[in-house]
Amino acid sequence: MSDTKKSFLIINRKAPYGSSAARDALDVALTISVFEQPLSLLFMDDAVLQLLPAHNAAAIGQKNLSANLSMLEMYDIDQLYVCQRALEQRGIRPDDIELNIILLDQSGIAALIKKQDQVLSF
């Protein structure tokens, strides 16, 4: 869609459902992918809670974010980075997550941010 390429990073930091942040970030990610720009997603802080499996959001009248997230690979969005410390703090093991994720420590996160052209936060 555009000859210019910019690398985008979306930083997710919010838990799902309680606010629109997770869904807002997902919609932006899908759009960036439609524009065929290099894209990475980073899950920090409470956003790692988005990655827990087996949501059943119909119970609260919302759409199922884990179903939506499993769609990312259909959009060829495969750079999913996760803050290791955020997982540990919440007692989540990487094996609990059904998506293909890349764990990052603090310096890994700094390096990821450093190499981006644009960073959008949610």
Partner: peptide, 18 residues
């Protein structure tokens, strides 16, 4: 089936992939 599985309608590229 795409909609049932992912709860979203696909854009063109993922539709083609499916």
């Amino acid at each position: 089936q795409f909609y049932q599985q992912f709860e979203m309608s696909p854009a063109m590229r993922p539709l083609i992939k499916a």
